[in-house]
Computed example of a mutant assay.
Amino acid sequence: MAIPMTRLGDRAFNHSVADDVEAEYDRLRDLARAEASKKSSCFDRAHQAYEQGNGAQAKALSEEGKKYAALQDSYNKQASEFIFRENNAPGRVAEDTIDLHGQFVDEAQDILEMRIRDAQARGQTHLHVIVGKGKHSTGHVDKLKPGVEQVCRQLGLDFATEANEGRIYVDLTGGRVGSAPPLPPQPSGYQGGYASGGYPAAGYHGGGHQQHQQQHHGQQHHQQQQQQPQDDVEKLILGCVRCCVVM
């Protein structure tokens, strides 16, 4: 069965980037998608082999599919780490801010949970999470924001959407948030850009992408490889193969 693909998030980068930087991110995601396609093909054929009573071939194809799955995960991990470094480099976001542009939902959730636990351990009282507005998602439905909200609920943390709707304020103390507090006044000589959605990133040193840049970029990124259906097929095949093949 084919792996369903859905777009998520907003533009991958929160700032203007060099062509080679954008190309590297695209390259890694494309490599992951290619391995996902190979994995899907192997699992489809493994299922067919099992249905035809060929347990040995089903097992071999399933094992081959798992190798492609590992490569897919590796390339996606590289892409996730690459874009995170780019978007959260010193001077692009404040110390109390994290930018999750360009992440798949599960990637964003893992990163956010680690960041929250680290911030709490350091005594930080809040966190600004940049997710974008999802304007370039399929059907303009944002997926990063609900993913972030889910993590907050699981950790028992209250949150509120900030004024530009592309940022979420999270209280790390366990307190209640009536509404997100206003951003601090823009410091003298501030040279930053705008936060995601065009809201002035006062005091946050360019914490979001500039609306007039990279208009084409959001049409190319963020196809989430949904693996659960494929994983279920793999488990079924492997379970049945173990019953049919003498190791």
Rank of each mutant, 00 (worst) to 15 (best):
G198P: 05
G123D: 07
A121Y: 03
D142C: 01
S74K: 11
D171C: 07
N14S: 15
A79Y: 08
A60K: 14
Q191Y: 05
D26R: 15
G192F: 04
A60G: 08
F82W: 11
R33V: 07
Q124W: 02
Q211T: 03
A49N: 09
S37H: 10
V151C: 08
Q230G: 01
E35H: 12
Y50M: 15
H205A: 07
A46M: 07
K59N: 04
D106G: 09
R117F: 05
Y68C: 13
A160Q: 04
G207Q: 06
G198M: 09
C152K: 04
D10Q: 11
A119Q: 13
Q154D: 02
Q52M: 15
C243M: 12
A121R: 12
E35R: 14
V170L: 06
R167A: 06
A195L: 08
T6S: 14
G147R: 08
L100T: 10
Q211R: 08
P181H: 14
I3D: 06
N76Q: 13
N88V: 06
H140I: 00
R167S: 02
G197P: 03
V148T: 02
L71S: 12
Q150H: 12
A121E: 06
L157M: 00
K235I: 03
L8V: 13
N164K: 01
S16P: 04
R153K: 12
I168D: 00
Q223T: 04
R242H: 10
N88D: 10
L238F: 04
Q154P: 00
V21S: 14
M5P: 06
A2N: 08
I3N: 14
D20E: 15
L71Q: 12
V148M: 03
H205N: 11
A201F: 00
N87R: 09
T125N: 11
A32Y: 12
S179G: 02
G174S: 07
V129M: 10
A12W: 14
A60V: 04
G123C: 12
Q225H: 11
Y50K: 15
A23C: 10
G178R: 06
V93H: 13
L157P: 02
A202K: 10
R115Y: 10
Q226F: 09
F82D: 11
V129N: 07
C42E: 15
I237N: 10
E162K: 05
E86R: 12
L61N: 04
K66W: 12
I130G: 01
G132I: 00
R45H: 10
L172V: 07
D232P: 03
K235R: 15
S74Y: 14
A49I: 03
N87T: 06
